[in-house]
Amino acid sequence: MLVVDDQPLFRAGLVALLNAAAGMTVVGEAADGDTAVRLAESSGPDVVLMDVRMPRMTGFAALERIVASGSPARVLILTTSDLDEHVCEALRLGAAGFVLKESEPARLLAAITAVACGEMQFSPAVMRRLVAAYLRADAAATPSSLPGLGELTGREREVLRLVGTGITNADIAARLTVTEGTVKTHLNRVMTKLRLTSRAQAVVTAYESGLVTPQLVARTA
């Protein structure tokens, strides 16, 4: 894990939290994006926890550089702002997730674990903003325009609904009393049937289909 934040006290708190968590080890710290890019290459972290507003190089610029370098590190954006343009920019540049600094420690740790396992991860609050922005940009989309939705089994629809609320595969598995492997299998089938290429698209589809509403996501936040 590489922790990148320009606020020393906040960064120290994150490092202490992560080093105390089972299975997590901080391999480096950075106070700016330029240093983050260099450390991402030299220390080989699985996940980079990246602030947005920093001196010398912003978190988004550092994210773009890390992705362009071909690094296997997955970048989880951590910020105080959930502005629509920030969420969309993070997705465009290849972020694996976007979590607010106000999140509870347990939610942050769950997000890091999910990202390390190859999942996309957004807090419920961020997920609401992302979907709202998407639907504003594509107001013509309707449930009837979603090919393949009728091909989903009942369990696959339930998995899609839960993915749409922004929770992790582990949380979905717990709610459905199945293994994470089973959840991944159902989700892969959903993605294939609906011709989706990312978890973010699956979330948007859950909203467009009416399986998820902003009120439902608010109750899971």
Rank of each mutant, 00 (worst) to 15 (best):
Val67Ile: 14
Leu108Tyr: 00
Leu100Arg: 07
Gly154Cys: 03
Glu85Asp: 12
Gly33Val: 11
Val178Phe: 03
Glu64Tyr: 00
Leu130Met: 15
Gly70Met: 08
Val163Gly: 00
Val37Glu: 01
Thr220Asn: 12
Leu130Ile: 08
Gly33Trp: 04
Leu78Val: 14
Leu176Gln: 07
Ala111Lys: 06
Asp84Trp: 08
Leu91Glu: 09
Cys88Ile: 12
Ala73Asp: 02
Met191Ser: 07
Leu63Glu: 01
Leu146Cys: 12
Leu108Cys: 07
Arg189Ala: 11
Glu29Val: 14
Leu14Glu: 05
Val212Ala: 02
Ala96Met: 08
Arg155Phe: 06
Gly97Phe: 06
Lys193Val: 05
Ala31Thr: 15
Asp51Cys: 12
Val4Gln: 04
Ala218Thr: 11
Gly44Val: 12
Ala114Pro: 04
Leu130Val: 09
Thr35Met: 12
Leu108Gly: 05
Gly181Trp: 06
Leu78Met: 10
Arg128Val: 11
Val47Arg: 03
Gly13Phe: 08
Phe98Ile: 06
Thr213Ala: 08
Val183Trp: 02
Lys184Ala: 15
Val203Leu: 10
Ser103Ala: 15
Gly13Lys: 09
Val217Arg: 07
Asn169Leu: 08
Ala137His: 10
Leu108Ser: 04
Met54Thr: 05
Lys193Tyr: 03
Ala20Ile: 09
Ala90Thr: 02
Val126Pro: 10
Val203Lys: 05
Met191Tyr: 10
Thr80Ile: 13
Thr182Pro: 02
Gly166Leu: 02
Gln7His: 15
Asp138Gly: 07
Val67Phe: 01
Val27Ile: 15
Leu2Ser: 04
Leu109Val: 08
Met127Phe: 06
Leu39Ser: 01
Asp171Leu: 09
Glu158Phe: 08
Pro124Ser: 07
Gly164Arg: 07
Glu156Ile: 03
Arg74Phe: 01
Thr185Asp: 11
Leu109Met: 06
Ala141Ser: 13
Ser71Leu: 03
Phe10Asn: 03
Ala137Leu: 13
Gly97Cys: 11
Leu149Val: 12
Ser71Trp: 00
Ile66Thr: 00
Arg195Val: 09
Arg128Ala: 06
Ala137Ser: 15
Gly150Cys: 07
Lys193Gln: 09
Ser71Asn: 15
Glu208Ile: 14
Asp138Pro: 02
Gly118Glu: 05
Leu135Arg: 14
Leu39Tyr: 02
Asp51Val: 14
Val190Asp: 01
Leu216Pro: 07
Leu176His: 05
